[in-house]
Each structure stands twice: as C-alpha cells, then as structure tokens.
Amino acid sequence: MSVPLPPRRRLAEPKGANRTLAVAGLVHALHDGYTDLIYVLLPIWQSEFGLSYSLLALLRGLYAGSMAALQVPSGRLAERVGARTLLACGTLLAALGYAFAGLSGGALGLCASLALSGAGSSVQHPIASAAVSRAFGDRARGPIGTYNFSGDLGKAALPGLTSLLVTLMPWRHALWLIAAIGLAAAAAVALMPRVRRGEAKSIERPIPEAGRGGFPMLCAIGALDTAARMGFLTFLPFMLQSRGATLPTVGAAFAAVFVGGAFGKFACGWLGARLGVVRTVLLTEGVTVALIVTAMALPLAPALILLPAVGVALNGTSSVLYGTVPELAPAARVESAFAVFYTGVIGAGALAPVLYGLIGDFGGWAWGMTAAAATALLTLPLVLLLSPLLSRR
C-alpha cells in the first residue's frame, strides 16, 4: 500500500540511507505478509474450530480494523516515543499476535490475537515510509517505490511459506516459526539509523476549482474497490478447495494473485498517466468483474492460470486512486487527505469481509464471491460521476 510522503531532506551519508531502505523494506514485507497470511489460515481454522463464514470473516476484519483505527494515532505517538522505537515495538507486537494465535483454543483467542497483531502492524506504513523519505531527501522517489514493492513481495512470500510449513508440521508450530521471523525483524529495526525529527509541513498543491468536493467520492470508490478485493480473497481458498485444491496449491494461488497485484500497481499507474483516471479505473474495475466471474466458472487448472491476471486488475485500481488524492485533497491538505483516504480504505477492508461472510453463510462461497464482483461493479457509476470533478490530465 502506498503512503503519503513527509517533507524531504537530503542525507549526506548514502550508506545510512541504504540501510534505512533495507530495514524498512524488510519490515514492510513482513507486515504486509502478516496481513494477507490470514487468508491461507482460514480453511485450517474452519476445520479446527468449526467456524462459520461470518466468524472467519470477522477474524480478517478484526486484524484490518485495528490496523485502520490506529494508523493515524501511531504517527502522532511516534513523535513522543521515537519513530524507530515505535516501529520495533509494533513489529514485536505483530509477531506476538501470531504467536498467541498458535496458542488459541477457539474463536475468542483468535480474535484477540489477530486484533493484537493488527494493532502492531498499524505503525509500519506511516513510520517506515517517512524514514525512507527523510533518509533519501530529494532522491526518495525511487527508494519509496522499492519500499512499496517490498510489501507485495511479502504478500507473495509469507502465505506461500506458511502453506508449505503446514504440510510439514502442525499449523500451530508453523505460526510460531512465522512469529519468530517477526521477532527477528523487530530486532533488525535496531540497525536502522535514528529517524531525524522535523516539523511536518503540509504539502501545498493547487486544486482546480472543478475538483473541490470530489474527495469524498474518491474515498467511496477506494472503499468499494478495497471491499471487492477483500471479498474475493476471503472466498478464494474455499473456491479452490471446492475444486480439489490442496493447501500448498491454495498458498501458491495467493502468491500468484499477489505477484500479479505487484505488477498491476506498476502497470496501472503507468496506464493511468496515459489514459487518465476515469478510463483507467473503468477498465480495471470492469476487467476485475469479468475475471472474477470467469474464475468462478472455470475448473481448477484454468482458474489457477487466470489468477495472476486477476491480481493485476484487483490491485491496479488502487495505484490510480492513490495518485488522484492530491488533485482532490480538501484545502490543499494533502497529507491529511492521504491519512483519511487510507484509514477509510483499510476500514472498508475490515468491515467488508464480515458482511460477505454473512452472505457466505446464507448461500456459500459462490454467493460471497458474486457479492464481491457486484461491489466492484458499483464503482463504475461513481467513477463516471467523479469525471467532471477531475482536471484534464
């Protein structure tokens, strides 16, 4: 996930800057991997504890909800206790959450553990990205891109690793090993040079008169896009298992989706700069709906082949919407606009799986995934309504 950039300053020591980028990238990969690791574990927990779809979706929602609710406060807390200290503590907390999940004896323990881990992950985006930006100053554009890409690598690596581990050992032991990786990452934060503090200044950018008032609609489009993505990912393992997929196959499927998503962020950002926001979002959301429906109708092997393309469409819209936030930010308060936008987007990612879970309890995974596709379809009229509020780009 992309994040707003703080004021940039040049750093005279490139070695320290590179070390900052390496540690921030490592931590980003870990936290994003933790966030999407849950999808691989849902079928295991359903079998182990006899949980309904709505309870399974609640587990995912609690993680995302605690991460969304604390993302803005964590940035303020970093000013008091120090960014590096808070980043290490947050990473430690996220790892302990998964360790406690391995000790859980039911839904209540899992809920508490995942809420704890999500709270720990809330510190990563605002703090690590700010550290990279300050370290590289005017040269931060490339390093920030590397930092963002590292998160997608984590999304592909950790679910795949966990799906392999659970074939070799009990799932609880696998989670403890995954938690141990988090503890090592928390310790590695000590290698990051101390993040220098400075006054945060709003990024001023002129806003076209036509664009005023479009920011809430942009947030709504982002929320619906995220809700559709979370709904698809929540029911993907159950769709694959209904066609005979094993746990390693499910893990590989998620890796394929996330690798496709990483490419989608890059490709659709480039496409948006050439086709414009409206046409690009109409394209990506339309393709998302078509690919979800097609994947539901295909046998296992063709569906697996299609998943990287699904990942491109699922994640592509987010990069286009992110680049539009400064254009529609109220009163040129771009930093505050980013905070509101991503809090809303992550919050939608927390609530949507719960609603889809209720639909899944009523009609099974197919109904839940159909609801996710319908949600993506709802973005199309909103994008058309937003079109007059955007400047020509």
Score class of each variant (00 low, 15 high):
286 G>R: 07
286 G>Y: 07
286 G>H: 09
286 G>W: 07
286 G>M: 09
286 G>L: 06
287 V>I: 13
287 V>S: 06
287 V>Q: 05
287 V>A: 06
287 V>E: 06
287 V>N: 06
287 V>H: 03
287 V>R: 03
287 V>M: 09
287 V>P: 01
288 T>S: 09
288 T>Q: 07
288 T>C: 05
289 V>D: 04
289 V>L: 05
289 V>R: 04
289 V>T: 01
290 A>V: 05
290 A>E: 04
290 A>I: 05
290 A>K: 05
290 A>M: 07
291 L>C: 04
291 L>I: 09
291 L>W: 06
291 L>F: 04
292 I>T: 01
292 I>H: 00
292 I>L: 06
292 I>F: 04
293 V>S: 11
293 V>Q: 14
293 V>E: 11
294 T>A: 14
294 T>G: 04
294 T>H: 05
294 T>R: 02
294 T>I: 08
295 A>F: 03
295 A>E: 00
295 A>W: 01
295 A>L: 02
295 A>K: 00
295 A>C: 07
296 M>Y: 01
296 M>N: 01
296 M>P: 00
296 M>S: 01
296 M>C: 04
296 M>V: 05
296 M>I: 02
297 A>I: 10
297 A>S: 12
297 A>N: 11
297 A>M: 12
297 A>Y: 12
297 A>T: 13
298 L>S: 11
298 L>Q: 09
298 L>M: 13
298 L>A: 07
298 L>I: 08
298 L>T: 11
299 P>A: 12
299 P>F: 12
299 P>N: 12
299 P>E: 14
300 L>W: 09
300 L>E: 08
300 L>G: 02
300 L>C: 10
301 A>E: 15
301 A>V: 11
301 A>D: 14
301 A>H: 12
301 A>F: 15
302 P>Y: 08
302 P>N: 12
302 P>T: 12
302 P>S: 12
302 P>A: 08
302 P>G: 11
302 P>C: 15
302 P>K: 07
303 A>Q: 01
303 A>E: 02
304 L>P: 02
304 L>I: 09
304 L>W: 08
304 L>D: 01
304 L>N: 03
304 L>M: 14
304 L>R: 09
305 I>N: 14
305 I>M: 15
305 I>E: 14
305 I>P: 15
305 I>K: 15
306 L>Q: 01
306 L>M: 08
307 L>D: 00
307 L>M: 08
308 P>Q: 13
308 P>A: 14
308 P>W: 13
308 P>N: 11
309 A>T: 15
309 A>P: 15
309 A>N: 09
309 A>K: 15
309 A>E: 13
309 A>W: 15
309 A>Y: 14
310 V>K: 04
310 V>F: 11
310 V>E: 08
310 V>D: 06
310 V>L: 10
310 V>R: 06
311 G>I: 12
311 G>F: 10
311 G>N: 09
311 G>Y: 06
311 G>K: 07
311 G>C: 14
311 G>P: 07
311 G>H: 09
312 V>D: 00
312 V>G: 01
312 V>K: 01
312 V>E: 02
312 V>T: 05
312 V>N: 05
312 V>W: 03
313 A>L: 04
313 A>H: 02
313 A>F: 04
313 A>Y: 03
313 A>K: 03
313 A>R: 03
313 A>W: 03
314 L>I: 11
314 L>K: 06
314 L>S: 06
314 L>H: 03
314 L>P: 02
314 L>Q: 05
315 N>K: 12
315 N>T: 12
